[in-house]
């Protein structure tokens, strides 16, 4: 199971990095979304795939009675999903605004902050 998941994670990263290397911002956004999911899957796998028993302690007991799924990676993934989701939403809005204002969804044509034909610095002194 772990090996299959590892290949899946590898696939996620491959696709994500391919998309991130593109110049188009929309593709980069998709890459960001996929790499986020790849990382979540990675944390899940790395916490070991154990039996699918929920980590709930029965009332009256202090410890779970049988082997449980490791809850920590799930908590980490949940947090990472929330953060990744909000940042993705922000980047999406930002890209949209940038597309409207700068008329550019391509990093090559997005040169307001770093003009391509920027004048040479003065050579005196």
């Amino acid at each position: 199971m772990e090996i299959a998941l590892s290949f899946l994670i590898g696939l996620f990263f491959t696709v994500a990095i391919y998309l991130l290397l593109s110049r188009s911002l929309i593709r980069m956004l998709l890459g960001i979304a996929i790499i986020g999911n790849g990382v979540n899957l990675l944390i899940f796998t790395i916490g070991r795939v154990t039996r699918e028993v929920p980590p709930i302690v029965p009332s009256g007991e202090y410890a779970p009675l049988e082997t449980i799924a490791n809850p920590l990676p799930q908590a980490l993934i949940l947090t990472a999903i929330v953060i990744g989701f909000s940042l993705f939403a922000f980047l999406l809005v930002l890209t949209y605004r940038a597309y409207q204002e700068l008329d550019a969804d391509n990093t090559d044509t997005m040169r307001v902050a770093e003009p391509e034909d920027s004048p040479r610095p003065p050579l005196s002194y």
């Binding site: 939403a89 922000f90 809005v93 949209y96 409207q100």
Partner: peptide, 13 residues
Amino acid sequence: GAISSIALALEED
């Protein structure tokens, strides 16, 4: 608050 402000900003647009 956060999600609806993003959604409303996009819809307004």
